[in-house]
């Protein structure tokens, strides 16, 4: 009896010991278009657990410290791709990044809006240019031939060709980490090329040639200088630079 009492009394204490609170600082690049002429840093002190997500930390700031903090988020499970931001100098999804991976006890997490797109407020950017280049690659299935009675069959190998590019969630982590996209607004960007890859290597799609012609332009794949920033930034682990090279080769062999 005494032993069970002993156990129940220590269990919560043990749990608390296993999950100590980290005292961290969150440094966020704030910009209010109605008040500020330039973006400025603001720092918030937060207690967080090592297993908390950075999104939880930002929510803590918004709910309990500064209600005016603006950022996008929706599903909070790394699927909708809304909360891409520059966390400790790298583009990541706030909902897929754990506090323990970016800060130690007493450390600082820096959060900035993703680069290369106009900042509307705080961490919220204008995504229109990003989606314009997405639309430019005709991101829809095109097949004019009459549909068969059952289904358009694809082998497992054929599905494998487009498996990685179909993982894209359009979070813009890759495109806004690309140095060419930062300085040159006419480049379609890695995300649009990954989306094009998904349709170019879809055996059921019939607009391959049209998409390869879009890719063959000065604004398409030839602007890629293989900086590999996109591959490092992708929260879905898509080997983006490799996929862009595959599209380059497809363009080359189509023209040959």
């Amino acid at each position: 009896m005494t032993q069970t009492q002993h156990e129940t009394s220590t269990a919560p204490a043990a749990a608390q010991q296993a999950l100590p609170m980290l005292h961290i600082k969150v440094k966020i690049l704030r910009f209010d278009p109605e008040k500020d002429r330039k973006a400025h840093w603001e720092t918030y002190a937060i207690d967080a657990q090592a297993g908390d997500r950075v999104l939880d930390v930002i929510n803590e700031v918004k709910w309990y410290q500064d209600h005016s903090l603006t950022f996008r988020r929706s599903c909070m499970h790394g699927i909708c791709g809304s909360d891409a931001m520059l966390i400790n100098g790298r583009n990541r999804l706030a909902c897929k990044t754990l506090v323990r991976d970016v800060a130690k006890d007493g450390g600082t997490i820096t959060i900035e809006p993703i680069r290369g797109l106009k900042v509307e407020k705080d961490l919220l950017v204008d995504m229109e240019p990003f989606f314009d280049s997405y639309k430019a690659i005709m991101p829809y299935f095109i097949n004019e031939s009459p549909a068969p009675a059952a289904e358009r069959i694809q082998s497992e190998e054929e599905a494998e060709r487009m498996a990685q590019s179909s993982n894209c969630i359009l979070c813009a982590c890759c495109t806004t980490s690309c140095p060419i996209f930062w300085v040159n607004g006419s480049y379609l960007g890695p995300a649009a090329i990954v989306q094009a890859h998904r349709f170019i290597f879809d055996t059921r799609d019939e607009a391959t040639e049209q998409r390869l012609n879009i890719m063959n332009q000065n604004t398409g794949v030839w602007r890629c200088r293989t900086a590999y920033n996109c591959t490092e930034a992708c929260p879905r682990d898509i080997p983006i630079t490799q996929l862009i090279e595959e599209v380059k080769r497809a363009v080359m062999y189509q023209q040959a």
Partner: peptide, 11 residues
């Protein structure tokens, strides 16, 4: 108009 200039330079 489509041109292969960039492709040729790449090769």
């Amino acid at each position: 108009s489509h041109s292969n200039a960039e492709l040729n330079w790449w090769i």
